[in-house]
Amino acid sequence: MLTSNGTILHHSTFILLGIPGLEAAHIWISIPFGLVYLMALLANFALLIIIKLEPSLHEPMYLFLCMLAGADLVTCTTVVPKLLSLFWFNDGEISFEGCLTQMFLIHSLSNMESGFFLVMAFDRYVAICHPLRHSAILTHSVIRGVGLAIFLRGTLIRSPHPLVLRWLPYCRSNIIPHTYCEFMAVVKLACAETRVIRTYSLTVAFLTGGLDFLLIICSYVLILQAVFRLPSKDARLKTLGTCSSHVCVILVFYTPAFFSFLTHRFGHHIAPHIHIFVANIYILVPPMVNPIIYGVRTKKIREKVLKFLFPSKF
């Protein structure tokens, strides 16, 4: 689309390059990426089915875990099929609207995942610090309301990104040196002043992911205070064990997220292929690891999986 003076308003398509400098290895890189995606699909669908069929798992923590699994499934499916098409068939072309849609889904779903981790931390806080009020505070109606609020937060707070980028003029290349349409990678192609939208993006990232992380830390400080007041070592270890799965998935999610966020904005000396690898790890690894962690460390889920795999032994 052209303006009256011939400046491109927006390209009809963008071209994803994949991992610059490693184009010759795309086929080999696609093998672990494809396997991780397949494992993420199987693990999350299995988790959803197990929690659906097992009434004893219809507790707040596992219902929030279902919401997280749904967000994980959509996130990796938004990225990986196009990534594999690029790596296998050198098909890096993506429409302008498709690029904005992919970018919006990735960032809004990431925001939702952060929200689910926060409410799961709150669930652990209530269960440990106020156990007698747990069922009264986290009722099913409250859980549905919290889930809806997290969905609306992720959707509304990220809506300005595609709306603004839709109308920015583009007079530079339509080539994106990435495996998917990442916000900053698209912004760099615009030939207009983008300071406001960049500032908004940075502010949103802090007020959602950053603030969520700080509140999670506060929750665990209160949890640790309550745990260390317990009379016996066994009671303390048992109580901390109920939080171990949540702590593990938080570390898996936030470590590459913060690294990717900070290096993309401030780590200009870091090689592009390292940044892109980390960005893909952030998209691919948590959806695969989250259900595995909960499956291994949660007795009820583990027993259901083993019963399905080895029915003759149960």
Rank of each mutant, 00 (worst) to 15 (best):
P286F: 08
H178K: 04
G18K: 09
L214T: 11
I281D: 09
T239D: 10
A46Q: 12
V227F: 02
V36S: 08
T242W: 13
L156I: 07
G147M: 08
L57K: 08
S12L: 14
V296D: 02
T239F: 06
L230E: 08
C99W: 03
T3Y: 11
V74Y: 02
Y170L: 03
N5I: 03
T13E: 15
N290L: 12
E23K: 13
M67K: 12
G147Q: 07
I19H: 00
I29L: 11
K307H: 13
I31P: 00
I223S: 04
I176P: 09
G115D: 00
T179W: 01
M1W: 07
S108A: 11
K233G: 07
A46S: 14
H134M: 11
P272K: 02
P160M: 02
T199N: 15
C243L: 03
G92A: 05
C218V: 14
I157D: 09
G98V: 01
L306S: 11
N280C: 03
V221F: 05
L224P: 03
C248V: 14
G115C: 04
P20T: 02
K300I: 14
P160F: 06
L207T: 10
I292P: 11
V146G: 07
L38Y: 10
S245K: 01
E182C: 00
L230Y: 05
G210D: 06
F183D: 08
R158G: 03
K82G: 10
L109W: 05
M39T: 06
D72T: 10
V187P: 05
L9S: 04
L168S: 04
L63K: 10
P81C: 02
P287A: 06
H273E: 11
G145N: 04
H268V: 11
M288T: 09
I293E: 01
R302V: 15
F183T: 12
I49W: 15
I137H: 13
V119N: 01
M67W: 10
R172G: 06
Y37I: 02
P169S: 06
Y62G: 12
I292D: 09
S12F: 10
K300S: 15
L148W: 08
V36F: 07
S159W: 12
F87V: 05
M120W: 04
D234Q: 13
S95L: 04
L237R: 13
H130R: 15
L202Q: 12
A185Q: 08
F151W: 06
S4P: 02
